[in-house]
Design a protein around this nucleic acid. Structure first.
Length: 550
RNA sequence: GCGCCCGUAGCUCAACUGGAUAGAGCAUUGGCCUCCGGAGCCAAAGGUUCCGGGUUCAAAUCCCGGCGGGCGUACCA
């Protein structure tokens, strides 16, 4: 049994013995003391009970401690501190035991089953196929990928999906823009359409087409030519997106096309359902959805007075389609400019009978790129955007991913290119990777020195401060993974890895691993292996490499 | 105007979602290599958590009112 589980069940036993009943399991939650010297695990349960029991928290804590069944294998002592915290000090015997446990669990250490196999879908990036992926997409890509990993680790069945907007006005404009570039390249000057796409990539594609098919399309009727080019440009852009994400080590389970919804008339079904349940009405020649009944600030148009379905209606049908594919929970990652869109989508899905909390949107805040301490100005109109490919090329996949994950997603991010490129101690990616490489090097050194490395060895020689500190840190990993998943907070993982690296470096600095003392050497090698395993597991969760040497 | 997000060390960010003396990394200053990788370690300095009220055993966190910043406010996608 894990020490946390032992403490939780024992608190319950003590509570019943005291005659206290808790209305909510959440009141039992355990914490890590902020301050060193206040124990290893802490319970605020006494403070949580003050209002119910109407007694001072310290008094409650004393009663609980008096009835607590102490098992010396797990606990050294119990304290009451501050306003009424019950602090538990883990016994060295219990701490040491986690070292062989971690080695046995190997790549599975940190995983849990609380998701119960529930299916969850993350849709992210879903950039319009009208231009290359940019920096914000790169952030969303890293975050979405890690979130899916986190949920798979915690016992869910998580999928990644990319939604391709391959229909509508923008695709038409894309075709017309390519047409203009193509015709101009062939000598008949054609202006870009109003709101057309100015980027170089369209000219590149036009040149590619000419190199391959010469002027084959020139004689076509303009509308036919534009339609052909729309499709070609679309396929080209989607392929480009796939290549970029591939390089980023991100692999989607599904690339879903908007035309699948349109072609199947799925949106008509949605419309029928809403009409039948009197959740829509006609006004000024358009069809409106009563989204204000579900908390949106006003009603929204589903079908324009021209008789065209709005993007919103198609999007509802798309989300309905996700549910019909068996997902219990849907999480979308959107850009900050879409936050106003959340209430209406949530309203629509509730109207269709889905539980409110089955749909969640995580807003990924904007990214400012810093070079030489200055914000790099980006303007879409002038074609002045930094592409995801350029960024990866410049700083590498590992650093890019780490920097994007390292900050709370709901917070705007300043991405310092110069720092990410640095191969020095200023760069946190290397700090963590270096700890891993350093451990690999110790193990290598031990082998080369003729030390035999058995599967398991006695860990009882581990007892000094740095050894215990490292073990305690390793022990935290599964809980960090769970909390990062539950709160959609991947930055907890990078934070934890950085701390773990620090504690390891400190241990390394104070203690020589390979020495004349054979039992101690074996025990410390075990500890090194456990630490290496945890660092490797954390890095794999982020899809960042764990190098054996650097 | 209205709505959403945000304001924490010089800079970039944390703070286990209401907990104990608000912590890291850069940058600054000063130490540590006959020895498993110094891409490392130790230490100093740095704070009225934007301001003012309120809620309670407890507030950076929740509520109200200011101030400052970002975004949104389409029968576009």
């Amino acid at each position: 049994m894990k020490p946390q589980d032992y403490i939780r069940t024992s608190i319950k036993t003590a509570l019943t013995a005291c005659g206290y009943t808790i209305p909510d399991e959440k009141l039992l939650c355990l914490e890590k003391p902020k301050q060193a010297g206040l124990g290893d695990i802490s319970s605020p349960v006494a403070m949580n009970l003050t209002r119910l029991v109407k007694q001072p928290p310290r008094q409650i804590a004393e009663k609980i401690v008096a009835h607590f069944p102490v098992d010396p294998f797990y606990l050294e002592k119990i304290d009451i501190a501050g306003p009424g915290f019950i602090n538990f000090y883990l016994a060295p015997s219990c701490l040491r035991q986690t070292v062989p446990d971690i080695i046995n669990e190997g790549a599975n250490f940190g995983k849990s089953t609380w998701g119960g196999g529930e299916r969850i879908q993350f849709e992210f990036v879903s950039a319009n196929p009208t231009g290359p992926l940019n920096i914000v997409s790169a952030r969303a890509a890293a975050v979405g990928d890690v979130l899916a990993n986190l949920y798979n680790w915690t016992g869910f069945k998580a999928d990644r999906e990319f939604y391709i907007n391959d229909a509508g006005r923008q695709v038409r404009l894309l075709g017309e823009s390519l047409n203009a570039r193509y015709m101009t390249e062939l000598g008949s000057e054609t202006p870009l359409p109003e709101d057309g796409y100015h980027g170089e990539y369209i000219r590149d594609l036009a040149q590619e087409i000419i190199a391959r098919d010469s002027d084959k399309y020139k004689s076509l009727d303009t509308t036919v030519r534009c339609a052909t080019f729309s499709k070609m440009a679309l396929d080209y852009m989607v392929q480009r997106h796939q290549n970029s994400l591939d390089k980023y080590r991100l692999h989607y389970d599904q690339w879903f096309r908007e035309t699948v919804i349109r072609d199947s008339q799925a949106h008509s079904g949605v419309l029928d359902y809403l009409q039948k349940h009197e959740l829509s009405y006609e006004q000024d020649g358009a069809v409106w959805f009563r989204s204000s009944q579900y908390g949106d600030e006003k009603d929204r148009v589903l079908v324009t007075s021209e008789g065209e379905p709005t993007y919103f209606l198609i999007d509802i049908a798309y989300h309905q389609n996700k549910y019909s594919r068996g997902y219990n929970k849907i999480i979308d990652l959107w850009g900050p400019d879409h936050h106003g869109y959340i209430p209406r989508m949530s309203a629509a899905l509730q109207a269709l009978g889905h539980p409110k909390d089955s749909f969640d949107v995580l807003i990924i805040q904007q990214v400012n790129l810093l070079r030489g301490g200055e914000i790099v100005k980006m303007s879409k109109r002038a074609g002045q955007i930094i592409e995801m490919d350029e960024l990866i090329e410049e700083v590498g996949v590992d650093a890019a991913r780490y920097f994007f994950i390292d900050r709370r997603v709901t917070q705007p991010l300043d991405f310092d290119i110069d720092l990410a490129k640095k191969q020095t101690d200023e760069n946190p990616v290397f700090y963590v990777q270096y700890a891993h490489a350093r451990i690999c090097n110790i193990l290598r050194f031990a082998r080369e020195s003729g030390v035999h490395l058995p599967e398991q060895a006695d860990v009882s020689p581990l007892q000094n401060e740095q050894e215990m500190a490292l073990i305690k840190k390793l022990l935290d990993f599964p809980e960090i993974v769970s909390k990062a998943a539950e709160g959609l907070e991947p930055h907890r993982i990078t934070g934890y890895l950085h701390e773990t690296a620090t504690v390891f470096h400190r241990f390394y600095h104070e203690n020589r691993v390979v020495t004349e003392d054979a039992p101690l050497t074996q025990a410390r090698l075990m500890l090194c292996r456990a630490a290496r395993q945890v660092l490797a597991n954390g890095l794999s969760l982020l899809n960042i490499s764990a190098p054996e040497n650097m």
